[in-house]
């Protein structure tokens, strides 16, 4: 019996599936959005694109994707990706990371990747929790939410990774959610088109380690929460401050600017040094 494959399925290592994520997890939605964005881009193919990930639930995605893939150490995906890109600038390099991986243990690498404007597309799967280790608070766990290491509710203030990326020098910053899957795909596709550091925060639901502890309901309820609280950038900009409640957040292309990327800048160094 022959199977009918959906067009994007060729991008997966089907012998490595099913994935290890929990039923209802949003990571698979974000992973699919990445390959659909790749499919849309005529310059990206499976032989010239490298997927680099860190450690955590998000970062297991690289193993399922049929490209050259690099599952690095906790927090270190961006430095590894920087080396891949600088050693062979012809490669398209995509980084998959999580909220703990990128903004806690990898925080320094994240801001310096942005500053350098190295031509990477970084997709942060934000599930608001350390999922792989069973639900500890991350720098992106909203204040007041419960985690195994914040049993009375987190008192830590939260990173806004998009604002952080913009402030640090990223040249393309976008956010979307697992509910807005086509929009998420477009946001990632836009990142591929930017020659420089592109950052996309993909809000994904973690029903097991985050939603359940915080009484957020079934996975579908968590997705509906995203539908009800995400506000498109254009509408967000017009929203009066009193309606920007703590739960509401903007999605869309949040920031874009032109700046020379690191590879291009280094070409001038080679030229000045008289190199080949």
């Amino acid at each position: 019996m022959s199977e009918i494959l959906r067009s994007y399925e060729k991008y997966f290592r089907r012998n490595r599936l099913p994935h290890l994520w929990c039923p209802g997890c949003g990571n698979g939605i974000a992973m699919k959005a990445i390959v659909q964005a790749i499919e849309k881009n005529p310059e990206f193919n499976q032989d010239n694109t490298v997927i680099v990930s860190g450690i955590g639930c998000s970062s297991r995605a690289s193993g399922y994707m049929d490209f050259d893939t690099l599952h690095t150490a906790h927090g270190r995906a961006i430095p590894f990706a920087t080396g891949v890109k600088l050693a062979n600038p012809k490669l398209n390099v995509i980084v998959i990371t999580g909220d703990g991986d990128c903004t806690a243990i990898g925080g320094n690498h994240f801001i310096h990747g942005c500053r350098r404007n190295i031509d990477l597309t970084v997709v942060l799967f934000n599930n608001n929790i350390y999922g792989m280790t069973g639900g500890q608070a991350s720098p992106m766990t909203p204040t007041g939410k419960k985690a195994t290491t914040a049993p009375y509710g987190s008192v830590d203030r939260t990173f806004d990774a998009c604002s952080l990326a913009q402030a640090a020098g990223a040249t393309y910053v976008a956010r979307s959610t697992a509910f807005h899957v086509n929009h998420l795909t477009d946001m990632i596709a836009g990142g591929f088109n930017n020659k420089g550091f592109s950052f996309i925060e993909a809000l994904v639901q973690c029903p097991t380690a985050y939603g359940r502890r915080n009484k957020m309901g079934a996975p579908a309820e968590m997705l509906k929460w995203m539908r009800d609280n995400a506000v498109m950038k254009a509408a967000w900009d017009k929203l009066p401050d009193e309606k920007k409640t703590p739960e509401k957040f903007p999605i869309g292309l949040l920031y874009e600017t032109n700046a020379v990327d690191y590879d291009t800048a280094y070409e001038s160094v080679i030229e000045l040094a008289g190199g080949k």
């Binding site: 490298v50 680099v52 050259d68 690099l70 690095t72 150490a73 270190r76 961006i78 430095p79 590894f80 990706a81 920087t82 080396g83 891949v84 890109k85 600088l86 050693a87 062979n88 490669l91 320094n108 690498h109 801001i111 310096h112 690191y262 280094y266 160094v269 080679i270 000045l272 040094a273 008289g274 190199g275 080949k276």
Partner: peptide
């Protein structure tokens, strides 16, 4: 750069080690 190679000063010691490993895998 005289030899067409690349030097990068990274943000910390761990990052510079990560960068060489990525570059090695890229050839």
């Amino acid at each position: 750069p005289k030899y067409g190679g690349t030097f990068v000063q990274m943000e910390d010691e761990i990052a510079s080690m990560g960068a060489i490993l990525g570059a090695s895998l890229a050839g």
